[in-house]
Design a protein around this nucleic acid. Sequence first.
DNA 1: TTGAAAGCGCTAACAA
DNA 2: TTGTTAGCGCTTTCAA
Lengths: 355, 355
Amino acid sequence: MKSATIYDVAREAGVSIKTVSRILNHDMTVKAANRERVLAAVDRLNYRPSLSARSLAGSRSFVVAAFVDAQLTIDHWRSGRATDYLARVQLGATLECRKAGYHFLLELIDHDRASLKREARDVLSALSPDGVLLTPPSCDDPDMLELLIASRTPFVRLGSESEVEGGIQLTLDDRGGAATAVRHLVELGHTRIACILGDPRYGSSEARLAGYHEALAEAGLAADESLVLSGDFTFQSGVTATERLLAGARPPTAIFASSDEMALGSLSALSQAGLRAPEDVSVVGFDDSAGARFSRPQLTTVRQPLIEMASEAVRRLIQKPGADPVAAPAFTSELIVRDSTAPPKPRARRAAGAG
Amino acid sequence: MKSATIYDVAREAGVSIKTVSRILNHDMTVKAANRERVLAAVDRLNYRPSLSARSLAGSRSFVVAAFVDAQLTIDHWRSGRATDYLARVQLGATLECRKAGYHFLLELIDHDRASLKREARDVLSALSPDGVLLTPPSCDDPDMLELLIASRTPFVRLGSESEVEGGIQLTLDDRGGAATAVRHLVELGHTRIACILGDPRYGSSEARLAGYHEALAEAGLAADESLVLSGDFTFQSGVTATERLLAGARPPTAIFASSDEMALGSLSALSQAGLRAPEDVSVVGFDDSAGARFSRPQLTTVRQPLIEMASEAVRRLIQKPGADPVAAPAFTSELIVRDSTAPPKPRARRAAGAG
DNA sequence: TTGAAAGCGCTAACAA
DNA sequence: TTGTTAGCGCTTTCAA
């Protein structure tokens, strides 16, 4: 049972293939009567145009690809670390593609300097996707951007606000989200608030630090650089930074971690040290990953509207060049208050004897 | 900068396009000297054959698709419930495809009777994938199987051991895994072991129940049907079943839940009732989802080698028809012992005062 | 071992 | 408003 072709439909409807093609492409210059008959024939034959044929003959491939860091993605998938960043991007992108008759493809690209360009180029020329979705850290890779621009492939960068020519930018509100998180701690009454930084290779790390400083400044709190520690988004780096913090002369009463994983690390280090969250130290994360809902205490964290942003990204990518460019809706981060934050104790004592 | 075509390469290498084509397709009947020159030209021009052209002209599309239940997948992705079943399948399939120059596509198919056939057929005729990967519950859907067989698309069913003509079957060891889990409880000394069933629409539910009975029989323990409760894989159903169990005349000292989510529900209901796991009641789950590692206590559970099975599935799908069919490697489930299981208390008392 | 020519199923000018 | 005719970049007979 071979699939029907456009010729079969044309014959069945008694029109030329061009008329069928017009209807498939929503060309409005077709008589209603013919449209009906073609649509009926399409239905009767279960006809669907072949993607490869359309792609080969025409200027669109009906494919949108996301280029993601291979090593990172493999690690995440394999470790089951409950970070659902990618799942949410996939969801938004897939649904939007489906709506428009497009297909969404997740392409793993090795991000070492030797491979990236080759692999990205391979995908580009093999698939000629109509658009590419870039997430951190790919979205800041100069090689990647150069390649995309050279091949004239539309792309959307889903990332922090670094300026880059070419491509569409959908800005994750990292700075704002971090500021909201820290503001929350300030409002609870904390004055000694630490910050654990993310991987410096990600633009978001810097942006989140900026948000931290912004909220502190707003509250008139002096920035204490001994409370700002480096990290790399991983659980272990959260543990290490927190241990360092606790060993200091005047430990903080609250910690803002630039990722949920690090926040979970903080929680673990705290508990290891005999301290309780939020009674002794409040902790805020960032991402609202699944892990944040499974931890004890459940993590107060910042959620970015990734699903919606990925939808919007795809929408931009596949809109007809003629369409009027709608302004990007404002995507704002949302603070999810759970159980890991509370007012500081009247006089912060460091003790194991809580409870 | 348009991509090079096969003509460009042929010209650059001073041969016909057919020779280039032969080399791309690993046809061995090409003189070494020509091969070298063509390969060099390919390199110089960064040539990659167009997928659409190959697919249109030839008999392969270089695409493998997985057909998954749309509603289920969307729910999982959106809820961030930390079930990484799909991520692991995706990982195995994607990596294997990448190795072979194929592309892996996740297709969401609505599984209500009205849509399934239409949507699946649409994907099939639009993409003509070289193979389709089926997971539960799609892998047992007669409409789906009929369609795949009619369209002569090779497919692999990644599921329980129900017999179906056509297609390749890669069996998840649900029965064996469940038996191992229950055996573990038996070895710890439990004799009153409850079982919470999965969604009856899934073949795996029945298989896991069979494993439960098998282990009980082995140990010479009488099956007490009041200890077997229905469920549907969800957290809430785990809660409900456990409450029912605790309200019974002689509650169990151990619970085998057919999914981690239900096991997590059990844990929650137990704690709600003032009981502790594993001191008062042991709990075993199934799946080794991310949530199992984040719960407190961490869940003892059964892990299926999904990544490896998905790899193997793709390997089968894309192997040349001529290739000798290698026997399926034996995929066995693995018991991951964590903190939610322990020997029963000498004399099981039901009390809230533990601690 | 290689090449020439036909055609896969569509879209895109250009006519009518 | 519709149809005709070329290709798109490959694979596939069939010859050479």
